[in-house]
Each structure stands twice: as C-alpha cells, then as structure tokens.
Amino acid sequence: MYVAVKGGEKAIDNAHEWLAEERRGDPSVAELSVAQIREQLSLAVNRVMAEGSLYDPDLAALAIKQARGDLIEAIFLIRAYRTTLPRIGHAEPVDTGAMACDRRISATFKDAPGGQVLGPTFDYTHRLLDFALAAEGLEPHAEEGLPAEGKMPRITEFLNKEGLIQEEPRSDQAPPDMTRQPMEYPAGRPLRLQALTRGDEGFVLSMAYSTQRGYAKNHPFVGELRIGTVPVEMEIPELGFAIEIGEVVLTECETVNQFTGSRTEPAQFTRGYGLVFGQTERKAISMALVDRALRWEELGEDDLGAPAQDEEFVLSHADNIQATGFLEHIKLPHYVDFQSELELVRKIRAEAMDAAMKEAAE
C-alpha cells in the first residue's frame, strides 16, 4: 500500500494532530477503551483479526480505536504489525470436530446428530432499533450460555456413509503460505482458501451472492455452521510431543452442493468450505460458496464464464489492503503525470481543429 507522500513536514504534522483530535472526539464524552471495543464490538474485532491474519483481540481492538472505526485501515495496521513478529514455529492442525460450540446449526437435517445449538445470533431478531440500549447501564442481562462440548459428528459424515458426498483428497504435504510467497496461478485449493479467509468480507459476499443468482452452477445448502473454541497445539522439539499453547475462536462452514455429475464424476453432493477467525459466519458461508464455485475444473464441470469461477479474478481482487492501496494512491500528487496528459489532450484537440479547418477550407 502507498504510505509515502511528499509535502511540507509542518503540514503533515498538523494533519496528524488534527487526526488525533478527530479520533478523540468531544472531550466531554468518556473515551472509548480498548477493553470496551474488544468486549462490545466483538464482531468488528473478529473481522479485523480474520482479514488481518492475526489472532489477538486486544491488538485488533486497539487497531479499531486507532483507525476511528475504519475496519480496512485497522486491518492494514494489524497486517503491518504482523510483519514485525518472528515466526517461532507452526501449530498442529486444529481439530474443529472437537470444538466447544457456542453455535452449531444445520440447514439440511432438522434433527441433526448432536443437536442444533442456536447460540448468539441476529437470525431470530426483528431488526428493530432497541432504544433501551441508548439508556446506558440499563441493558437486559441474559444468563450466559454454556458451549456444547464433546465430539460433535459432522453432517457430511452421515452423507458419506452412503457415498452421497464427494470424498475430499487428503495430503500430508504442508500447504504453501501466501504470507511468505507470492500468489501464483493456478493457485490450488489450499492457497485459494487462504486468500478467501483473508479477503474482504464485502467482496467475498458479493461473489457468493452472484453464484446464488445464477452466475455459476451452484445450489448450496448449509450442511453445517459451527462457531466455538478450539485448542491450539504446538510440537515442542525438546519434549518430542505437542502441548496446548492456547485457544482460538473459529467459525467453520461446510456447504452441501447439488451436483448432477460430469464426465468424470457420478451424481453426488459436493462441498464448499469456509474457516475464519472469530464469530464471522457471513464471511464463512460466503467463503464456502466461492470455494465451491472455484472447484468447477477439478469436478469436471463446464466453465460458465461466471466471475466467481475465475480464480485469478477472484483472488487478485479479494484483498482489501491491496485494493485500498491501489485506489487511494491516486489521491497523492500526480502533477507530472497529469501535465503530460493535459499536453497530450491539448495537442490532439489542436490537431483535430487544424484538420477540421483544412477540410472546411477545401
């Protein structure tokens, strides 16, 4: 992203001071604390962690405060900070099947094995403004629910018993890391999933919506959506085994997609997959839909020319930090470039006018 700008140093210092004043707002209003942002704007914090690729609620809340609530700016701050951190090792793959679920639903089976856990969600609210929230300190306090613990079987496992869903190929090979090496095309599914989980929520949502409106051969059901806490383990060389080093909250979505078969595959269901930091279910569902749309070639489907099927188009435009940098650099000084364009337009107009005058004279 473009961050350098030439100009008067005093003017830039003044701009920074003015920004700090605007960030603080009216001094008679109590300052918003990082803890308040972390606890009460948790969905914004989750988005910043997901698209910033750094799981740290406190730092994400600090970034939101510093960015005055501009989430893309906050994501940029988190990514910039992330580049300063040393990489001390790699965690073991997390087992989302052992997730302590705050929310776990399926749109495919009413009586899902393990039960439906509605959890904290806007899905069943009326979307009416609650003016009681404006009376600070008087918000109703519900009893805090306990997460559903224990192994929860996956819905797709039951479909798989009848061979009704495509088997996912497994590989012991470590996936490439897009934060350490540039994206190459074709990217392959592991890289695609990394790009989508870091991608801008609005862009991924738009791509997913386009698939539902017919711009890809995609008819999805939410096989399972689960949100909860999973332990993170890391192998310690001195010990020779893995130990738990912390916990993270994740949102995981598996879609079940209609598939009538192809030249290489029988009629069956196929999957889309989404996994995102925090409670970020809109993003996880969108990611799963786009993931499935991008799998058209490996499943032997036809290329319908839909935007969501175009790997390079989707992945090269999903990153909001790259997009913002390219967009916002045009407000920086381009005096020399514009003067050359101006002279060119004047020259073309003068030549056209001369030609018109000659033609009229003839």
Rank of each mutant, 00 (worst) to 15 (best):
A4Y: 06
V5S: 05
V5G: 01
E9A: 15
E9R: 10
A11N: 02
H16R: 15
E21M: 13
R24E: 13
G25T: 03
S28T: 15
S33R: 08
S33Q: 07
V34L: 00
A35H: 04
Q36R: 13
Q40Y: 10
Q40A: 13
Q40S: 11
L41G: 10
S42A: 12
A44M: 13
V45T: 15
N46M: 02
R47H: 06
L54P: 03
Y55D: 06
D56L: 02
D58F: 09
I64P: 04
D70I: 12
D70V: 13
L71F: 07
I72C: 08
E73Y: 12
I75L: 08
R79V: 04
T83F: 04
L85W: 07
I88M: 00
G97R: 13
A98G: 05
S106E: 02
A112R: 15
A112H: 11
A112W: 08
G114M: 08
G115F: 00
V117E: 05
D123W: 12
Y124D: 03
R127P: 00
F131Y: 09
A132H: 06
L133D: 12
A135F: 08
A135P: 00
L138S: 14
E139L: 10
P140I: 02
E144I: 11
E149S: 06
M152C: 07
P153R: 01
E157S: 13
N160H: 07
E162V: 08
G163K: 12
I165Y: 01
Q166V: 15
Q173L: 13
P175N: 03
R180H: 07
P182Y: 06
E184D: 01
P186E: 01
P190K: 03
L191V: 15
Q194H: 01
L196A: 01
L196M: 05
L196D: 00
R198N: 02
E201S: 14
V204D: 09
V204Y: 00
M207I: 09
M207E: 13
Y209R: 13
Y209W: 05
T211H: 10
T211L: 10
N218P: 04
F221P: 01
F221G: 08
F221M: 14
V222P: 07
L225D: 05
R226E: 09
R226G: 07
V232I: 15
V232L: 15
E233H: 15
I236G: 03
E238T: 12
G240S: 07
V248C: 04
L250G: 03
E252M: 11
C253Y: 07
N257Y: 05
T264Y: 09
T264F: 11
E265Y: 05
R271I: 11
Y273F: 15
G274F: 01
L275V: 06
V276Y: 03
G278R: 06
T280E: 12
E281L: 01
A284N: 11
A284M: 10
S286I: 01
M287E: 11
L289M: 14
L289N: 14
D291A: 14
D291M: 13
D291L: 14
L294P: 09
L294S: 09
R295N: 15
E301I: 06
D302C: 09
G305A: 09
P307G: 09
Q309L: 10
I321K: 04
I321L: 07
A323P: 01
G325D: 06
E328A: 09
L332S: 08
P333E: 08
P333C: 07
E341F: 00
E343L: 01
E351N: 10
A352Q: 12
A352W: 07
A355I: 06
A356E: 04
K358L: 09
E359M: 11
A360W: 12
A360Y: 10
E362G: 11
